[in-house]
Amino acid sequence: MDEFHECSARANDVQGCPMCTLVGPAGSTYCGSCGAHKHDGWDDSLQKTWAWLVTSILLYLPANMLPIMYTSFLGKTTESTILGGIVTLWEHGSYPIAAVIFIASVLVPLGKIIVLVWLCISVQRGYTGAHRHKTLLYRATELVGRWSMIDVFVVGILVALIQLGSIMNILPGSAALAFAAMVVTTMLAAIAFDPRLIWVSEHTESENKEPPE
């Protein structure tokens, strides 16, 4: 339990609006000053986060296993996956770009999913401690997650530029959409997660004194 526990909005029966920052009474669904829908449903947040997370995990598989683009050169068509593209770049000696794509397309989505799953579990199980670190991790996932879209844009640009009739063509593969959808759903998961849950897990425990069914 930290020193600020007594000063939380929840302990004082007030509620801050995440949209306009104004303080109002707890329990109202819409903010009186800006009209935004307030997410005071703390449990709702976890459920939504889980739903988006499961969706993004399911999308992660086709995004990495199916081809992200088809390159046809003089009538011969080759397909490449995200990992395959990184390997090709590495073999051609473009180490920094290979590293950027590897971090943005493989590490970031995976790390983001792992962090959010862990945060959800730690809130549900009522793990306390390390609040600051958990909050920092959450902020990092929110900040970095968008950058995974790089690969989708790369495919978009290559497809748009390389349309040279019979000589060379590039077409997007089905992994491109799966990957874009995966990035969107992980972002939705991060937005759905309410970071305040990290800090209230301890007094939700003490409030729910009645034994679980």
């Binding site: 000063c7 939380s8 929840r10």
Partner: peptide
């Protein structure tokens, strides 16, 4: 002004 921290629910 008084506000509530969006991230940790503290009244500030």
């Amino acid at each position: 002004s008084r506000m509530v921290c969006h991230e940790c629910d503290l009244v500030v």
